[in-house]
Structure formats: structure tokens, C-alpha cells
Design a binder for these strands. Structure first.
Lengths: 240, 240
DNA sequence: CGTGTTTAAGTCAATATGACCTTTAGGGGT
DNA sequence: ACCCCTAAAGGTCATATTGACTTAAACACG
């Protein structure tokens, strides 16, 4: 890089990182992937997985690489989107580090292995973390909080909820995703009607799944639509 | 800044900038503020206003400073929110420059003056720009495109449309904002009913405004709610 | 062949929506 | 004063959607 502007005292080179808020649903709870930091600063403290963006990769590629390196997760199987940039000058004790936060949603993922900069990686309950509201390195609690709010809104007007399910899923599974993330129960019958009436949300695979007990459930896969119209609105009450 | 990781060939210092997509409505058209670049690269080409983030400011403060320096606009009077980060390694010929794009919405603003790095600043018609789809420096057309889509969606489920109006406004003014941004006509009567039934969207000032001709219109100001429930949905058709 | 359990489908009153139409409150002209 | 034009404000009504609830269907198991 040339040294244009090197003489300006106001502008200074920065380091750019990506951090990942990776969500999944396990045991009917919303979980986020955390690592235990193996390097300074915040050595030993829980943090979102992430790391430096390298020389010739896009931000998204950096996120995918960190996903693999730190959590052992193949990004091809989950939904990844940018959440936003966090650049408070005080957020990193080492100096000016701007981080680009990414949001990842995936089906029940394998217990991850620790990566290079991480002693270990593990799934943590989001509701528990938010209740404690402490412990995370850097401004990762704020990032996590923003990510959670984004997920809650995203599943209202996009098909993002399907990212938490496998290739094919029952409508009950999908409904559980909403119930877990919104923290409220939904009427199964009305939920079914809404989802099935929203064109392109899901499409039937023709197959059916036999639960341990009860009537077999039809299986669906994600439809062609990402934006839902009309959206599934919470709050106004979708049922009991 | 220390030299941790200086020996890693993969990681390299970056420059971080902010760019602004500043929208307003003039003459019933959606306009965006552009500058004519006064420095290399892309000297003389139109671009979104923006510049380097300085040493001790937050990203948002940087955006507000650039807003003032390059466009002479006081950020206190408009809505400012982060759009996202753009970090393709090829996006800037000088090297790795990650930009944080901000979205600003304001009422009909004064004709701006050129700033330090800009020969001049001017309002450009968004629909015209998107139709031509060329000319902008860097990846600013992509940023503008994302910003436009964000605005279109944002006014659906937030009170963002009020940011285009002054302190107080008539419902016709507000409706025009929607019509201009969505590019479709709305039924005045149904629009009024919807807006007035959405709690916290607007509240009456008690005053009224006398149009050049016709019955005087009631004046409203922004209500306490930012998120609209239910949202104002387009597409499904809010009228003619 | 009942029973328990879960999915699937139906009912219905209350509400919201989209497409209209009517009334009201000005201003300007004659 | 009166009429006419315009835009706001308010009303009507058939249709669609919603929320709460009920009923029917399809298995597994004993």
C-alpha cells in the first residue's frame, strides 16, 4: 500500500476483523457458539469466534474461513449474512480494531472443536447469556444482543427460520423455531395455515416423517421465496 | 499500535472509511447527495460523500463529521443509521480500504456546498442514477442500490418515512413520501386510516395547514413509536 | 381393538383491507 | 353573496385475514 496520507496525524491504519454470531437450536433452546480465548487480550474469557481479515479475501470469505478455522463448521450448509460494523475506538485495548459482525444460522450443528486461537468452542444458551449480561470479551455482548434482535425480526419477514431446520422438516419443527426464538407459544393450526398460505415459503417434499407417537407429519423444504409476503408477525398474537 | 502479528504475511493493516447515502425528497423525486471527487482516485467522478475514519472517533461520529465537512449538513436534524460494511479487496485501487456505509434520511435539505475533497456537491435523482447504472466511483453504485432497497423496506415497518418530513407535516406529505419511494400511488383515504390506526406512528399537533387550494389539512408530528405494528405493507396493494 | 398422541382440517366471530363514495372546509372568481 | 374548484376528512361495503377453538384423521402400542 502506498503512503498517501501517511503524514496526516488524524488518520491511522486500522485492523479489520470479523466476528461471528452463530446460532442454532438445541434441545428447544437458542444457542450461540462461543470460544474460550487462547490468546491475549481477554485470555480465557468467552468470546464470539472471529479473527483478522486477510489480505486478499472479501469480508464474507473471511467470515467463512473463521467459521471453519475456529469452529470447524462448513459455511456452505448455513445461512450467513452481515450484521454490521463495530468500531468504537475503545472496543479493543490493542488499538483501533474495527470488526465486521456476521450472523450465521444453522441446523443443530456438531459439537465444535477448538481452533487455533481458541482453547475450546462450545454452545451457550442465549437466554442464559443475556440474563447474566457479563463475561464476554470486547463488545461481544452488544454484538450478540444486536444479533439476537436481528434474528427475531428476520424470521418475521424472511424465510430465515428455515435455516435452523435441516434439508427437510415438518411444520411442527418450523413452528418450534419460532416459538424458541420469540419465546412465545403459537397456535399450531393457525401457524400451519399462515405458512402454507405464504407463497414460496415452504413446499411439500411429498414425503412424510413418522414421529415416535402420533399421526405422521408431512415433510417440507424451503420454497423459492426469501422475503415473505405477507410476513409472519409476532406481538399482534399468532395464537395462544 | 503494537506490532503483534506484524510478522504474519497474511494479515495487513487496512484503512477504514465511511460513506454516506443521504436521501431526501425534492420535487416529488427521491434524491441522493453526490459529490464530484476532487482527488485521486476517480478524480472528477461522482461518488457518495465520505472519507477516512479518524483516530479517536466512533464510526458514527466519523459519518457525522463527513456529513458536515463534505456536505455542510448538520447531522442532528436527520436520521442516521448504519447500512453495512463493504470490504472487497478490489474495491479501492489504492489497496485494502474497508468502508462502512451509512444511510441518512432528511427533509428537503439546502443545496449543499462542496467540501475539502469534493469539487462540488449536488442532489441527483435516484431513479435516474439507477437507470443509467454507471459512473459512480468505487462500488458506490452497489452501496446506493443496497441503500435504496433498505429505505424501501425500512419505511414499511418503521416510522422512517417521517424523517423525510419536517418537524410537522400533513398526512398528504407523508403519503407522498411513500408514493415517491415505492413508486406507486396509494389511496389517500386508506392511507390515512392505516397511519392513524397504527399506534404511536404520528400524533396530531392540533394545528392545521392551509394548502393553496382545498380544505385545510391537519398537522402531525412523529409519534413515540419507531417500529410500526402493524407495518404498512406495499405490494399487497394499499390502494390504486 | 381401544387409547394416547400428534398432525391435519374445519368453523366462526371479530377485525382488517381495498375500492369506492360523500361530506366538509377552505380559496378564487364573478 | 354565491358558485365552483380543490384537497382533506370521513363513511360504506364486500371481501380477506386473523385468532380462538373444535373436529377428524393417522399412526404406535398394548
Amino acid at each position: 500500500m502506498d503512503d498517501w496520507l501517511k503524514d496526516s496525524v488524524e488518520v491511522e491504519a486500522s485492523w479489520v476483523t470479523v466476528d461471528l454470531a452463530i446460532f442454532t437450536i438445541r434441545d428447544d433452546r437458542l444457542m450461540v457458539l462461543l470460544i474460550e480465548r487462547g490468546v491475549e487480550p481477554f485470555l480465557g474469557r468467552p468470546a464470539l469466534p472471529g479473527g483478522y481479515v486477510q489480505k486478499n479475501e472479501t469480508l464474507r470469505d473471511g467470515a467463512l474461513r473463521e467459521l471453519w478455522e475456529e469452529a470447524g463448521i462448513d459455511g456452505g450448509r448455513l445461512h450467513l449474512e452481515q450484521l454490521g460494523a463495530y468500531g468504537d475506538p475503545q472496543r479493543d485495548p490493542r488499538g483501533r480494531v474495527v470488526t465486521i459482525a456476521y450472523l450465521a444460522l444453522g441446523p443443530d450443528l456438531p459439537a465444535p472443536v477448538g481452533g487455533t486461537d481458541a482453547r475450546r468452542a462450545y454452545w451457550a444458551s442465549v437466554s442464559q447469556l443475556m440474563a447474566e449480561a457479563k463475561g464476554l470479551a470486547f463488545d461481544h455482548l452488544a454484538i450478540l444482543s444486536d444479533a439476537l434482535e436481528e434474528v427475531r425480526r428476520k424470521i418475521e419477514y424472511t424465510a430465515a427460520a428455515t435455516a435452523f431446520c435441516g434439508e427437510s422438516f415438518t411444520l411442527s419443527e418450523l413452528r418450534t423455531v419460532y416459538e424458541v426464538i420469540w419465546g412465545e407459544g403459537l397456535d399450531p393450526s393457525n401457524f400451519r395455515r399462515k405458512v402454507l398460505n405464504t407463497v414460496g415459503f415452504v413446499e411439500s417434499t411429498g414425503e412424510r416423517w413418522h414421529p415416535p407417537t402420533g399421526r405422521p407429519a408431512g415433510l417440507y423444504r424451503r420454497g423459492s421465496a426469501w422475503l415473505l409476503s405477507p410476513p409472519l408477525l409476532r406481538g399482534t398474537g399468532n395464537g395462544a
